[in-house]
């Protein structure tokens, strides 16, 4: 019984939260990786693009709520996402046309484009703050829990409860669907294959008649879709605050690099690597050991490897270690 209690404890505090946080990071990391693979620069606007998409999703959610439209037990935001996506796609395409295409045409070095993306980061941040303000906002509605700790205890008779929030399940399901479609697209369709080919060998892709404009455009569209969905899921699960989204850029980059930047599948896994290590290394294992060890060996300290203050620092340290020992990433980088 104690063992089961211990397992439930880990499930509740580590596995479930890490899985949903990892999915949110993964969606971001995939598009950062995709942009790096195809457009060949580090896209520093990543976090703010997510907050841009989420902001419009929230605005549409409010609009639908004011009309009395709702999904019942599901959050209204789910029907608002497509509208948020459309506006975000429009925004990235305009941005590409006005800003990035010039440098691409001039064949500027990647560093230049990364700097330009800092310019667009400032602008995007300003737009978000001017439109919706810098405050913390919650826009979740519907049924909050799928499984409550008390119910779980009652059903199983265990000491430890297991809480599953509906946002966690939604996050996981949506991520699975979106990522499956994306990898199907990249691996099975002609356009998807041409994107991989372009990322692999630009010159040869051009010689083969692949249209760079189309490839770039589709990349931005995918980025906008993933950014909006990932951002909205994060906001539903936690809350929406522009500054947090900007900061999320850092673990997202860490995930993308750990997974081998330019490789979306690696980035997808990288998201979970970062999420799990953040939570595993900062969790206090005391209770866990109380369950599995005999009383005489019970620990009296928290058994916490690092204080939760260092949550971010963990992912960055992993990144630094990966950069040092395997710069191509754990899952072999480059090539979509």
């Amino acid at each position: 019984m104690d063992i089961i209690n211990a397992i439930v404890l880990l499930l509740n505090y580590i596995f479930v939260p890490a899985l949903s946080y990892g999915s949110q990071l993964a969606l971001g990391a995939i598009f950062v990786s995709l942009i790096y693979g195809i457009l060949r620069f580090a896209y520093f606007t990543a976090g703010d693009l997510m907050s841009f998409g989420t902001m419009f999703t929230i605005l549409f959610t409010w609009y639908f709520q004011s009309l009395g439209i709702s999904l019942g037990v599901l959050p209204t935001a789910l029907i608002a996402i497509p509208f948020g996506i459309i506006i975000t796609i429009f925004y990235v395409l305009v941005k590409d046309k006005l800003v990035f295409s010039y440098y691409r045409f001039k064949k500027s070095p990647p560093v230049m484009l990364a700097m330009v993306s800092i310019g667009t980061m400032f602008v995007t941040q300003a737009i978000v703050r001017i439109v919706i303000g810098p405050f913390d906002r919650r826009f979740f509605d519907g049924e909050k829990f799928i499984l409550k700790a008390n119910e779980f205890k009652e059903i199983t008779g265990l000491n430890e409860g297991l809480t599953i929030k509906s946002t966690q399940v939604i996050t996981l399901l949506v991520t699975i669907i979106v990522v499956s479609i994306l990898f199907w697209f990249l691996n099975k369709t002609k356009t998807g294959k041409s994107m991989r080919a372009y990322s692999d060998n630009e010159d040869l892709a051009l010689l083969s008649g692949i249209d760079p404009k189309k490839v770039v455009m589709i990349t931005w569209v995918i980025a906008a879709i993933l950014a909006t969905i990932g951002g909205t899921l994060y906001g539903l699960d936690k809350s929406f605050k522009p500054f947090t989204y900007f900061n999320n850029m850092l673990p997202i980059f860490a995930a993308a690099i750990v997974g081998g930047i330019g490789n979306p599948f690696g980035a997808f896994l990288g998201g979970y690597v970062i999420a799990f290590s953040e939570i595993l290394l900062t969790y206090a294992y005391r209770k866990f050991f109380v369950y599995i060890l005999p009383e005489s060996l019970e620990p009296n300290s928290l058994i916490q490897l690092l204080s939760t203050d260092y949550k971010f620092a963990v992912s960055f340290s992993i990144l630094v270690i990966v950069l040092l020992f395997r710069p191509s990433g754990i899952f072999k980088g480059k090539v979509l």
Partner: peptide, 17 residues
């Protein structure tokens, strides 16, 4: 060649047009 693509995909890309 496209080193990250399979043989079949390399050929398909050759016939992209």
């Amino acid at each position: 060649v496209f080193t990250g693509l399979s043989v079949q995909e390399n050929l398909e890309m050759g016939a992209f047009l």
